[in-house]
Design a protein around this nucleic acid. Sequence first.
DNA 1: AGGCTTCCGGTCAGAAAGTGGCCGGAAGCC
DNA 2: GGCTTCCGGCCACTTTCTGACCGGAAGCCT
Lengths: 318, 318
Amino acid sequence: MANTSSRTLRLLALLQTHRQWAGAELADRLDVSERTLRRDVDRLRELGYPVHAARGTDGGYQLAPGAVLPPLLLDEEEAVALAVGMGEAARSSITGMEASAIRALTKVVQVMPPRLRRRVDVLRGATVSATSAEPVVTVDVLTTVAQACRDEERLRFSYAARGREPSSREVEPYRLVTLGRRWYLVAYDLTRQDWRSFRLDRLAQAQATGARFRPRDLPTQDAAAFVRAAGGVPEPYTVEALVHAPAAWVRTTVGQWGTVEEAGERSCLLRMTSASLDWPAQALGNVGAEFEVLGPPEFVTYIREWGERFVRAASPRS
Amino acid sequence: MANTSSRTLRLLALLQTHRQWAGAELADRLDVSERTLRRDVDRLRELGYPVHAARGTDGGYQLAPGAVLPPLLLDEEEAVALAVGMGEAARSSITGMEASAIRALTKVVQVMPPRLRRRVDVLRGATVSATSAEPVVTVDVLTTVAQACRDEERLRFSYAARGREPSSREVEPYRLVTLGRRWYLVAYDLTRQDWRSFRLDRLAQAQATGARFRPRDLPTQDAAAFVRAAGGVPEPYTVEALVHAPAAWVRTTVGQWGTVEEAGERSCLLRMTSASLDWPAQALGNVGAEFEVLGPPEFVTYIREWGERFVRAASPRS
DNA sequence: AGGCTTCCGGTCAGAAAGTGGCCGGAAGCC
DNA sequence: GGCTTCCGGCCACTTTCTGACCGGAAGCCT
């Protein structure tokens, strides 16, 4: 405990929690002489972390942004917040960020004591939010699966295919794919002796067996393509509507969830792809402008019902 | 660089990126003998990080969850994802988690090279999503303000009060408050010689001056109460509706964004507080059940207009 | 300007680690 | 039983770490 490396780490932790630290204070906390503290600071600098020092009456040390990212020293609360936030980010975020979000998530969850993990799941449950009532993928499932893909370890889990009893599976995980706001695992099913795709929200008790394997070649070029091609996976809807508002405005409200094309002077064509209809409906409601639904027919019905329901809700009853 | 502490850290980093590592492999990467590696592992264990070791044909070392959270070693991508995710989490999440989310966010941002910070802001811009077109608080503003509160440092910024020209302010920051999906800073304004609350999305070029101060006593008990009491801040709406669906169901869809009370056998009373009306409208739409809006009147109108708009949108035009 | 506080880094000598090599042992897989 | 892997004691040697003392430089305040 009175180690040098431990002290270096503690110093870094201290520098991360307060912006400014007086030398004497730090030396005191670390229980070393000030001379040694100065040497420790030097050590940090040699490791690439730019510790800034100010002299004078209220001088002190502070950690500045630099070329290398120092190890983050989080407390439990922060770690939980991180896990919850990353779970959310991975699920619904900007294309290209999911992978990094999951990597970060995996790193925290891997070292989190179980009691913290439980807290994460509880909090995530509370976050399902109003956006839609889709089944949630637990952090545990998400991270063990991601980890197994990364480390090329076999995976055992129980899978409840649509309407069927849950069955136990053992697979060689290949890739994690996100499609239409859902997560899928592409894997080689060892009992079925074939490639399969699994919806993560139907998967439970995921566990890496520890057995390593050499990844096989996927028949399809691309894991995402495989999921799309694999039967049984519901094709997401592609919704089209003509919105009577400037394209720029629509673009800012809808953000990245759809594509917008100019159509005439004050109108534009909005196209959104989603596994469910509630999401595009919300988006259109948010735009706040007049629009016409072009398709698909289900969406027309959906919007009409929603509209009628709202009109009824706003009419006083006897 | 050939330091012991640096090596300990690198070992930890390696253990975080792969679940399983063979001893020889690790020794090789760290460029030490296997004996020393074993000692390094021991060192980690002494520091409280439980490194699990398996013997036998494909044995190896792996980092297990333990009592202490080891420092997280993130790469740049992960750090960016973390910042984006935490920014989101802080803004819209479960009560009680914002503070930790912000602390975590501050820690990363503090050490992030500026170029990464820019990437974070770009990505956050893309996340505004369909939920609503509210102005976004930049990470920079959020973190410098949070940091200044924490470290009791004076803060200088430019503030654009409603409809007025931006003016420069110097304050003693007190507390960060989130209210109705918005962020406020409660601070003692040094030029005005009085307590003020500032909306973070109207605040720019925030910068800690470096001058420390001893926090004054806030006249109000609670910073949140102060913001609510402070004139000029628009009171959020409190929306009420009678939903004809089981309370449990409504609770799961609406999550924490509202309170649900049983009302009769198959109905419940849903109450939501929000700065804007679009949010509760979406939530009600999502529930998918019949409902009656009880108030306020603006919301009745809002729902009716939304409903009529949807009905029109679903009707074919000539 | 002068006094104060703070960080800075050289030198020294003793104390404490870290290091590789060697080896017999124990645990898990085939 | 044979293989592979981790384990940890021992030893001699090297390197680093540490606290104490110092003169110096930079920044703040009066």
